[in-house]
Design a protein around this nucleic acid. Sequence first.
DNA 1: TGGGTGACATGAT
DNA 2: AATCATGCCACCC
Length: 130
Amino acid sequence: MGKIKPFFEQVYAVIRLIPKGKVTSYGRIANMLDAPRGSRAVGYALRALKYKRNDPDYEGIPWQRVVNVQGEISLPGIGKQMQVELLEEDGVKFSSKGRIDLKQYLWEGMLPHEIKPLIGIEEENDGGQR
DNA sequence: TGGGTGACATGAT
DNA sequence: AATCATGCCACCC
């Protein structure tokens, strides 16, 4: 039946949909996955990529396109600089305060029912009856 | 094997 | 405006 991928997998699948030159927030990704309080879990998924960097299944995930709802980089330390660099390569500009103007660069995303087929999740209702 | 551990967002104080 | 608690989930040791 509705083949459910683990949540982290769903997160990665959504991130792959973020267009180059755009960003989205942890919270928006959570909302797209029907997990309105799951923003933190989205962050956990991103952190977990560190353990998967040798796994070909997880290559090419544009993780840099996820920022917090303020348009700021959440990733601490050296990784932050790397994220800024990658975003600049994407064509995203930072303000003098190190912020991204979400009015300009935000990827609005999709509704949960729109995004599920794209990330390999079937709707659980079979046939629309209820 | 089971906790502890994090790239967050929100509402209440 | 700044702090605080809480919800959320897979993975490593």
